[in-house]
Design a protein around this nucleic acid. Structure first.
Length: 107
DNA sequence: GGTTTGACCATAA
DNA sequence: CTTATGGCCAAAC
């Protein structure tokens, strides 16, 4: 399976109110240094069947996409799920989700 | 095949 | 706090 498809599959498993860093997704897929590919995969994402807004930077800050208006939208979607924003960034220590072994195996 | 690119990350100043 | 630099891996050309 392509790397991008694996990214989509894993992101779909993120529960509501939880977030993951690009690097965390890459690590869960077995390539800890492929954080850029995760963002690349989400950028090429056409369908909205994937909760892409639950993926942020490791700092908890929202990534600067080339598409204008995407960042504010992402924040709104996260806050709607109960994610707490502190000084413009997500509290990662509080909302970071850790994928379980069974979840990644199913992909 | 080589080269470019990018919703990243870590480090340093 | 900001800016700069290098590395990284997969996809696209």
């Amino acid at each position: 399976m392509n790397f991008r498809q694996r990214v989509y599959a894993l992101v779909r498993l993120i529960p509501s109110g939880r977030v993951l860093a690009y690097g965390d997704v890459a690590t869960a897929l077995g390539s800890p240094r492929a954080a850029r590919q995760v963002g690349y995969a989400l950028a090429a994402l056409g369908d909205d069947t994937v909760p892409w807004h639950r993926v942020v930077r490791k700092s908890g800050h929202i990534a600067h996409g080339g598409e204008p208006g995407r960042a504010p939208l992402q924040r709104v979607l996260l806050e709607a799920e109960g994610v707490v924003f502190d000084a413009g960034h997500v509290d990662m220590a509080r909302h970071r989700w850790q994928p379980e072994a069974g979840d990644v195996a199913g992909v």
